[in-house]
């Protein structure tokens, strides 16, 4: 019971302080992993991949997934589904409350200059938080810091992974034929490469 209250509280906080869509909830989930130990960085990277490849807003998908994984530890499927529901409701509750309040004075909110000023600071901060989360993913996917305790050690770098990352970056940014493709295609391609080279 306590766990579900905590799950709701953590996602309520995430919903209240997340600004924007897409990857914006991801930094909160990394801190949640640090603070609660409910799931690992590797779990999170898997969740991002699943959240990107399935219908529905990414933030909602991630909340559902985290709730499911956290709940399943409690004793199986019914607990997992309850966790998924609780986490998702936690995420959307602040939105509902805030929007219902704002809807009352809609125009004045939109035209308020201080809202614009706040966003001048919030946009780079949001990018910074996601960048920091990205560095955590790199640590679980490409670099293994435990190899670097006694100085540089080439075994601590996933070289095939680095090559794959460069190929993916080129495919998603530089090659016109492929850069408009849906992320799920690159995720499937990476999964095949991972199997072929026994990564992870």
């Amino acid at each position: 019971m306590m766990l579900y209250l905590q799950l709701f509280y953590e996602f309520f906080k995430t919903g209240l302080f997340t600004i924007g869509g897409g990857m914006a909830t991801v930094p909160f989930l990394y801190k949640m992993s640090d603070a609660t130990g409910w799931f690992t960085y590797n779990d999170l990277a898997n969740m991002i991949a699943v959240g990107e490849s399935t219908p529905g807003p990414i933030g909602v998908n991630m909340a559902t997934y985290v709730g499911f994984v956290t709940g399943i530890e409690q004793g199986g499927l019914p607990f997992a589904i309850l966790g998924a529901v609780v986490a998702t409701l936690g995420l959307i509750t602040p939105s509902i409350i805030v929007i219902l309040i704002i809807a009352a004075f809609l125009k004045s909110f939109k035209d308020n200059q201080y809202v614009g000023f706040a966003f001048y600071g919030l946009r780079p901060a949001s990018a910074g938080l996601i960048a920091a989360a990205g560095i955590s993913v790199i640590q679980s996917a490409l670099i293994f810091p435990e190899y670097f305790k006694d100085g540089f050690n080439p075994d601590g770098i996933n070289w095939i992974g680095c090559a794959l990352a460069i190929v993916l970056w080129l495919l998603t940014n530089k090659i016109n034929k492929t850069k408009k493709l849906h992320p799920v295609i690159f995720i499937a391609f990476s999964a095949i490469i991972g199997i072929v080279f026994s990564m992870g």
């Binding site: 996601i130 960048a131 992974g161 993916l168 940014n173 995720i187 095949i192």
Partner: peptide, 25 residues
């Protein structure tokens, strides 16, 4: 192994998301 490869892809997806946000931010 498949998820090992997928994690690499997630790094690139996040990197792309950040560079896109930075252009506006």
């Amino acid at each position: 192994h498949a998820f090992g490869g997928i994690r690499v892809c997630v790094c690139v997806l996040i990197f792309n998301a950040v560079t896109k946000l930075l252009k506006k931010a």
